[in-house]
Design a protein around this nucleic acid. Structure first.
Length: 838
RNA sequence: GCGCCCGUAGCCCAAUAGGCAGAGGCACAGGAUUUAGGUUCCUGCCAGUGUGAGUUCGAGUCUCACCGGGCGCACCA
C-alpha cells in the first residue's frame, strides 16, 4: 500500500477497537486509587436496569457522562466512576414466568450482556466496584437499613387504601401512579385496602424542601420545580367543627377538623364535605341516610381515578343526615359526603366556601346549598366563585370582625381569634404522602420481619441477615394478588426470633426504589462487611460531585435518595444532607420527531449502529448532537459525518514528521519559542476554551472547537508551516487528548501513531500557555449611529483615547460623519466605538 | 386552569458581562483527484434571530404582550 492509499483508506475501525480493548484491560486505567494521593471526584451515572442489551439512550447518557469522568482523569483527579445494576424488578420476574425459570437467570445473563457492551463502548468505569442490588451481599444491607429506619419510627405498617395495579398484581407508590395509570404497564390503577409497609417520608417534607436551596444553581430548575410541586407545601389552618349533638350518637361532643388555606373565608362556610371513601364519612353517617350513603359509596368505588380526576365531571355527593357548627358564627351547616374531596389529603374533610371556591360553588349550585360571599369581588365581576384579592365582607361576629380587611390581614386576625378560642391552629399541610414500599411480587428484597401470633411484628436479628429469597421459578411466581413468597411454605414458616414459637415471614418484597436509594453509598466501599458502607470511605467520596441521568427520575429515585441521605445523616452515618451536588439530565434520543418504539417501528438498534460506524463515531455523534439536556433526533444526525471527521483527525497523526518529545508544550527536549505561532495560538486557545465549555456542560461546542483545531492543523500541514513544524505535533497531540474524552479508540490510535505509549486517556491535560492567548491585534468596530462604518486593527491594550482618536480619523467614519455633529462617543476598548450624532 | 422552558440559514446547532449574527456540522451545487463510484481537497449556497412594542448609544441576548412548540402539575381545599 502506498502512502497515498493509506491516507485515503482511513483506519480500520473494528481492528482498532479490538486492539485497544485488550491493552486497556491490561492497563486498567480507570480504577480509583482511593489513597488520598490526589483530590477525589465522584462521577455518578444512574445505574441501568438489566432488561435486554443497551439501547440508544444508554449510548447517549454514557457518552455524555464519560466526557466529564475522562476530563476529570485528564485534569489529574482521582475519579470514582462506578457501575452497577438495579437488578431486582418486575420485567425479570415476568420473563421468568414465561420461561419457567428463576428471575436470576434472566437478570444475570442480561447483566453480562450489558457489561460486555459497556466495555465495548469504552466507558471509563471502575469495574472493581461493580454491584448488583439483587446480590444477597447487597440486599443484606438494604434489609439492615430497613430495620434501622423501623427503629427510628420511619418504617411502619398501616392498613389503608392503596393504589393497586390489576395487571402487575401489586400495590404501587403514589409516585408510580401517573394520571391514574400504572407507571410501568399503563394499566388503570384501582384502590384496595391492605396492610402495607411505609417509609415516613412525610417527616422529612420540610427538609426535602428547604435543602433544595443549596441545589439551586447545580440542579436543573425543572427538577427542583417538580419536586417542590410534588411535596406541595401549603400554609393554612386546622379548624375544628363540633358535630351537632342533637343528631349525634349521644355521648359527648365530637369535633371534626378540616385543613384550609383560607381561614379568612370561614364566615362563608355554608356546608361541610367529607371524602366519601374516608372512614370519617362512614362514622358520621346518620342511620336514616345509611342506605343512600352506601349506594353512593358503591358508585364512587366503581369510578376509576381517571374519572375522578376529571374536573369537567359534574359534582356528586350525598347528605349524611348530620350537621356541624361553624365555630365563628354558630351556624348549623349540613355535612355531605362527596368524591371531590380527597380522603388522603389534609384531614379528608373540608369546610365548603362556595363564594370563594369554584368546586364548592359547583357543588352548592348542584344541591341548592346557600352561598355567602366573604370577599367582595371587583366591580363588574361576572364569574361565580371569587378567589382573588379584595376586602372581606359578611365576616363579623360579636367578638371579631374581618370586614374591610384584605385577605392576608383577615387570615391573621381570624387565626389569632381561633387560636384564642381554641377552635383552630395555624398549620402546614403537604401533598407528599408516605412512601408505600411493600410489593406483592417475588423478585425484590425480602422485608426482614417475622409475624408472630404472640409477639406481633418481630424484626429479623441483624446477624441472621440477609433473609434470602427462596428459589422459586416459573408458575410459582405467577401473580395471585398476594406475594408468591406467601406460598413458599418452607420459606415463610419460621420460628419467631423472639419467642421461638411458630411464626411467618413477611412475604412482601420491597419496592426496587428502596434498593436504588443508597447504591451510590455502597460504591464507596462495595465489599464492606460491617455495614452498608464504610463511613470513612463515604466521607472521602461523597456527596457525588456530578450525577448524570434521565429526567424520568425527577421525583422518584431522586426524591427517595435525598430522603435516605437525610435519614442516614440523622443516624450519624454520613456528614452531608444532599447526596448529589450537581445533576445533569440528558435529553432523550428520538427518531423522526417521536420517541423510539416498537409500535411506531422507528427504533434504531445501537449494536447495528456500532457495527456500521464504530463506537467512537456513535459517541461523537451523541455528544455533538446538541446541548446535552436537549432531546436529540437521530434522523437529524450524521454518524457518517462523525466518522469522516474522525478519519480526518486520524490522518493528522500520520502526517506529523517531527519526532516525539519535540512538541513545544513538552518540557524536555523542546526548543523555547519553537513552532508556528499562529497554529500554537489556535491550539492553546482551543484548550483554554474547552476547559470552560466542559465546566458548563457545552460538550457539543467542545466537539466543534476540536473540529476547528483539526481544520487549522490540516491547513498548516498542507499549505502552512508544513508537517515537520513542532507546532503541528503539538496540535495533533492536543487533538488526540481532546478526542480521548469522546472517541477513546481513535484517540489511542492517534497517540500511538504519534509515537507514544498508551494510554492517552491518562496523559494529563496540557498546560495552557497564557502568552499564547494574547492576540497581537484585535479588530475594533466603529459604528456611527449604531451602523458599522469601519474596522480598525488595534493592539489589545489600546487606550480608550487612542482608540477614539483612531476611529475619528478613519476616512469611512469621516464620510459618515460629514455634516453632522458628534453628540456622544461610546468607547469600549479594544472592541468598539459607537459615535452618536445629533 | 396554574407553573416552567424553548423559537437563530433547507436541517442540527454556535454567538463571555447587551457590542461585527455564524464557530462547527448535515444536506445541496460546482471544481480538482479517481477508469468509475466512493474517498479526499478546494469553492459556493442560504437567515437578520416567531410577531409587535419598550428600555438602551447599541438587543438574538433585558422587559411586556401576543403567536407557535414542548414539559410538569392539576377537584391538594
Amino acid at each position: 500500500m502506498t502512502e497515498q492509499e493509506t491516507r485515503t483508506a482511513g483506519y480500520d475501525v473494528a481492528a482498532v477497537q479490538e486492539k485497544w480493548r485488550r491493552v486497556w484491560d491490561e492497563l486498567n486505567p480507570f480504577q480509583a486509587a482511593d489513597d488520598g494521593s490526589r483530590e477525589r471526584r465522584y462521577a455518578l451515572t444512574m445505574f441501568p436496569y438489566p432488561s435486554g442489551d443497551l439501547h440508544m439512550g444508554h449510548a447517549e447518557v454514557m457518552a455524555l457522562h464519560d466526557v466529564i469522568a475522562r476530563y476529570w482523569w485528564q485534569r489529574g483527579y482521582d475519579v470514582l466512576n462506578p457501575i452497577g445494576w438495579d437488578s431486582f424488578g418486575l420485567p425479570a420476574e415476568n420473563a421468568a414466568i414465561r420461561r419457567d425459570e428463576n428471575p436470576a437467570t434472566y437478570t444475570y445473563a442480561n447483566i453480562e450482556t450489558q457489561a460486555e457492551s459497556f466495555r465495548c463502548y469504552a466507558v471509563s468505569f471502575d469495574w472493581s466496584r461493580r454491584l448488583h442490588t439483587s446480590d444477597p451481599e447487597y440486599y443484606r444491607w438494604t434489609q439492615w437499613l430497613f430495620l434501622r429506619f423501623r427503629e427510628r419510627g420511619l418504617a411502619y405498617r398501616r392498613f389503608s387504601p392503596v393504589n393497586w395495579c390489576p395487571n402487575d398484581q401489586t400495590v404501587l407508590a403514589n409516585e408510580q401512579v401517573v394520571q391514574g395509570m400504572c407507571e410501568r404497564c399503563g394499566a388503570e390503577v384501582t384502590k384496595r385496602e391492605l396492610s402495607q409497609w411505609y417509609f415516613k417520608v412525610t417527616d422529612y417534607a420540610q427538609r426535602l424542601l428547604d435543602d433544595m436551596g443549596a441545589l439551586e444553581s447545580t440542579w436543573p430548575e425543572r427538577v427542583l420545580a417538580m419536586q417542590r410541586n410534588w411535596i406541595g407545601r401549603s400554609e393554612g389552618a386546622h379548624v375544628d367543627f363540633v358535630v351537632d349533638a342533637s343528631t349525634g350518637s349521644g355521648q359527648g361532643t365530637r369535633k371534626v377538623t378540616v385543613f384550609t388555606t383560607r381561614p379568612d373565608t370561614l364566615f362563608g362556610a355554608t356546608f361541610f364535605v367529607v371524602a366519601a371513601d374516608a372512614r370519617l364519612a362512614d362514622e358520621l353517617c346518620a342511620p336514616e341516610q345509611r342506605a343512600a350513603f352506601d349506594a353512593y359509596l358503591a358508585e364512587v368505588r366503581k369510578a376509576s381515578d381517571i374519572d375522578r380526576l376529571s374536573t369537567e365531571r359534574p359534582k356528586t355527593g350525598v347528605f349524611l343526615g348530620r350537621y356541624v357548627t361553624n365555630p365563628v358564627n354558630g351556624e348549623r351547616i349540613p355535612v355531605w359526603a362527596a368524591d371531590y374531596v380527597l380522603a388522603d389529603y389534609g384531614t379528608g374533610a373540608i369546610m365548603a366556601v362556595p363564594g370563594q371556591d369554584q368546586r364548592d360553588w359547583d357543588f352548592a349550585e348542584r344541591f341548592d346549598l346557600p352561598i355567602v360571599r366573604t370577599v367582595r369581588p371587583p366591580e363588574g365581576w361576572e364569574g361565580k366563585a371569587y378567589v382573588g384579592e379584595g376586602p372581606a365582607v359578611n365576616s363579623a361576629n360579636d367578638a371579631v370582625s374581618l370586614d374591610g380587611l384584605d385577605v392576608d390581614e383577615a387570615k391573621r386576625v381570624i387565626m389569632d381569634y381561633l387560636e384564642r378560642q381554641g377552635t383552630g391552629t395555624r398549620a402546614v399541610n403537604f401533598r407528599l404522602r408516605d412512601w408505600l414500599l411493600s410489593r406483592q411480587r417475588y423478585w425484590g428484597c425480602p422485608i426482614p420481619i417475622v409475624h408472630c401470633p404472640g409477639c406481633g411484628e418481630v424484626p429479623v436479628p441483624d446477624d441472621q441477615l440477609p433473609v434470602e429469597l427462596p428459589d422459586l421459578r416459573g408458575a410459582d411466581l405467577k401473580p395471585k394478588g398476594t406475594s408468591p413468597l406467601a406460598a413458599a411454605e418452607e420459606w415463610v414458616n419460621v420460628a419467631c426470633p423472639s419467642c421461638g414459637g411458630p411464626a411467618k415471614r413477611d412475604s412482601d418484597t420491597m419496592d426496587t426504589f428502596v434498593d436504588s436509594s443508597w447504591y451510590f453509598l455502597r460504591y464507596c466501599s462495595p465489599d464492606y462487611e460491617d455495614g452498608p458502607f464504610d463511613e470513612e470511605r463515604v466521607r472521602d467520596w461523597m456527596p457525588a460531585e456530578q450525577y448524570v441521568g434521565g429526567v424520568e427520575h425527577a421525583i422518584l429515585h431522586l426524591l427517595y435518595s435525598r430522603f435516605f441521605t437525610k435519614v442516614l445523616h440523622d443516624m450519624g452515618m454520613v456528614d452531608f444532607v444532599e447526596p448529589f451536588t450537581a445533576l445533569l439530565n440528558q435529553g432523550q434520543v428520538i427518531n423522526q420527531g417521536k420517541g423510539m418504539s416498537k409500535s411506531l417501528g422507528n427504533g434504531v438498534d445501537l449494536g447495528e449502529m456500532i457495527d456500521r460506524y464504530g463506537v467512537d463515531a456513535i459517541r461523537l455523534t451523541m455528544v455533538f448532537a446538541g446541548p446535552p439536556e436537549d432531546d436529540i433526533d437521530w434522523a437529524d444526525l450524521s454518524p457518517g459525518g462523525a466518522l469522516r471527521f474522525l478519519q480526518r483527525a486520524w490522518r493528522l497523526s500520520g502526517d506529523v514528521t517531527s519526532p516525539p518529545g519535540t512538541s513545544p508544550g513538552a518540557s524536555e527536549g523542546a526548543r523555547e519559542g519553537a513552532g508556528d505561532v499562529a497554529l500554537r495560538k489556535v491550539t492553546h486557545k482551543t484548550l483554554h476554551e474547552v476547559e470552560q465549555l466542559i465546566e458548563s456542560h457545552r460538550f457539543n461546542v467542545v466537539v466543534a472547537r476540536t473540529m476547528e483545531l483539526v481544520n487549522a492543523t490540516r491547513k498548516a500541514v498542507d499549505t502552512g508551516c508544513g508537517p515537520g513544524d513542532p507546532a503541528v505535533r503539538e496540535a495533533a497531540e492536543t487533538v488526540a487528548i481532546l478526542l480521548s474524552l469522546v472517541a477513546p479508540y481513535l484517540a489511542e490510535e492517534m497517540w500511538a501513531r504519534l509515537g507514544h505509549e498508551p494510554t492517552v486517556a491518562r496523559v494529563g491535560w496540557p498546560a495552557v500557555d497564557p502568552t499564547l492567548l494574547v492576540e497581537d491585534s484585535v479588530t475594533a468596530v466603529v459604528q456611527v449611529q449604531g451602523k458599522l462604518r469601519a474596522k480598525l486593527q488595534v493592539g489589545p491594550d489600546v487606550s480608550e483615547a487612542d482608540l477614539q482618536a483612531a476611529a475619528m480619523a478613519d476616512p469611512h467614519v469621516q464620510r459618515a460623519l460629514a455634516g453632522s455633529t458628534v453628540r456622544r462617543v461610546i468607547v469600549r476598548a479594544p472592541k468598539l466605538v459607537n459615535i452618536v450624532t445629533g
